[in-house]
């Protein structure tokens, strides 16, 4: 179980103090599928980074399976079983997909085991396993490899930050299938996905709406989804595409 108690995060922006996360308290129960949604700039990524230890909360405490991890490093939290898929995955010159999956697994996994993780994210393993995780990969490919690195780890809590961002429609259907499968898997694993996508919200046990650094709503899917459906917090597949077009105009 993950418990956030009075978490705040302030940062300096042009010499001014800004509160990005404001006194958030919430509990994520074990083996649940939780989706966090809310407007851009609402503090979702920041909160996920705080849980993974990448950003340090300026107030409050984080309890993971009964242990206070507030002072623990990224590495320590990872070893306790927290996994994080970045919204904007990092590229590495020289490291191959296989290298990354091996690091993720934390043991010298066999080629076919590595390939399985890639198939799970809809990539044809033999085309990718020896590719470098560098600029030659497209944004969508990189996102899927990022998800595979979390799948390769034996995590108790997996955080996915906007997994659908930058993925084309065809891959998007694949992606939904990955998350449906994750949800159905009998692994003891809690999944937290940051997403605006209706189809991902639809498979949630619980939905949290974050806005302006605060929890605006939290509850079961049946309770929350009807309230936000049709808004941009719960968009259909085409939302991102039209958004992209508007962005280009």
């Amino acid at each position: 179980m993950l418990e956030l108690k009075n978490i705040s995060f302030g940062a300096d922006s042009d010499g001014k103090k800004v509160e990005i996360v404001r006194d958030i308290s919430l509990t994520v129960p074990d083996n649940k599928f939780v989706v966090i949604t809310g407007p851009n700039g609402g503090g979702k990524s920041t909160l996920a980074k705080i849980i993974a230890g990448i950003e340090r909360n300026t107030a409050g405490s984080i309890i993971f399976n009964g242990e206070d991890i507030t002072e623990k490093s990224i590495t320590e939290r990872a070893r306790l079983g927290i996994g994080f898929a970045f919204q904007q995955p990092v590229r590495f010159k020289g490291l191959t997909v296989l290298d990354l999956l091996r690091i993720a697994a934390g043991r010298p996994i066999k080629m076919d085991a590595a390939c399985e993780y890639l198939s799970e994210v809809g990539l044809c393993a033999k085309d990718y396993i020896n590719r470098e995780v560098n600029a030659s990969l497209s944004g969508g490919e990189l996102k899927r490899i990022e998800i595979a690195t979390v799948l390769a780890r034996d995590v108790k809590l997996a955080l996915f930050d906007e997994p659908e961002a930058g993925i084309d429609l065809w891959s998007f259907n694949n992606l939904i299938r990955i998350f449906e499968k994750l949800r159905e898997s009998d692994k003891e694993r809690t999944i937290v996905v940051i997403s605006h996508q209706e189809r991902i919200l639809n498979i949630a046990d619980e939905i949290i709406v974050l806005a302006d650094g605060r929890v605006e709503k939290q509850g079961s899917k049946d309770e929350i989804l009807p309230e936000i459906i049709g808004t941009k917090y719960a968009a259909g597949e085409c939302y991102k595409l039209t958004e992209g077009v508007k962005g280009n105009a």
């Binding site: 590495t75 996994g83 990092v90 020289g94 490291l95 191959t96 290298d99 934390g106």
Partner: peptide, 21 residues
């Protein structure tokens, strides 16, 4: 940071990045 979220220490992450490079 990415490699640390995969469980490596900072020094181990550095080694992996250099070895790959």
């Amino acid at each position: 940071i990415k490699l640390m979220t995969l469980g490596l220490t900072e020094a181990e992450a550095e080694e992996q990045i250099i070895n790959g490079f």
